[in-house]
């Protein structure tokens, strides 16, 4: 009986990752695999590069650091978001109606693929459903600026 509960527990933690959202369900099976790979890599990259400012729940910090969770800016400016991750942000940015004056450092050590992984993670965490960004797409985004 106890073993039964244990197995059920294992089943629950292995089947219930939060990222299987609507954006995920729309993907082809090949892209689903890519999505999962990107998401897991992106989560680790987020921890080392983004978390201390944007926080583990993506909420940012009051009116100092903008949120990523539920961010209209992130949703509507994917290419710009890629560039901000790479080059940092120093100009006023409006997120969900609040003007932030960011002091975000550049992350020049990241590759386009890693930017894509971070975007895929933040795009699909904390209730966000902004979908997969693959490495080629991120490279294209980064060339625009």
């Amino acid at each position: 009986m106890r073993l039964g509960y244990f197995l059920l527990f294992l089943l629950l933690i292995s089947c219930g990752p939060g990222y299987k959202n609507k954006a995920f369900e729309k993907l082809s099976s090949a892209d689903k695999i890519k999505f999962e790979k990107y998401f897991i890599q992106g989560r680790d990259l987020y921890k080392t590069n983004c978390l201390s400012c944007h926080q583990k729940n993506g909420q940012g910090l009051k009116k100092l650091i903008p949120p990523l969770a539920g961010s209209d800016y992130l949703k509507n400016n994917q290419a710009k978001a890629a560039q901000l991750i790479m080059d940092g942000a120093w100009e006023t940015i409006r997120v969900n109606g609040v003007d932030y004056k960011p002091t975000m450092p550049a992350h020049k050590h990241l590759t386009a693929l890693e930017v894509a992984e971070i975007l895929t993670y933040i795009n699909n965490s904390w209730g966000n459903e902004y979908g997969l960004v693959d490495g080629n797409k991120a490279a294209e985004y980064l060339k625009r600026f």
Binding site: S52, C53, Q55, L61, K62, L64, I65, T103, M104, P105
Partner: peptide, 16 residues
């Protein structure tokens, strides 16, 4: 410092 990109936000969350 206000432009600190590393641990300051974490410190300020705790001081809050």
């Amino acid at each position: 410092f206000t432009t600190c990109p590393s641990i300051c936000p974490l410190m300020k969350i705790q001081l809050l």
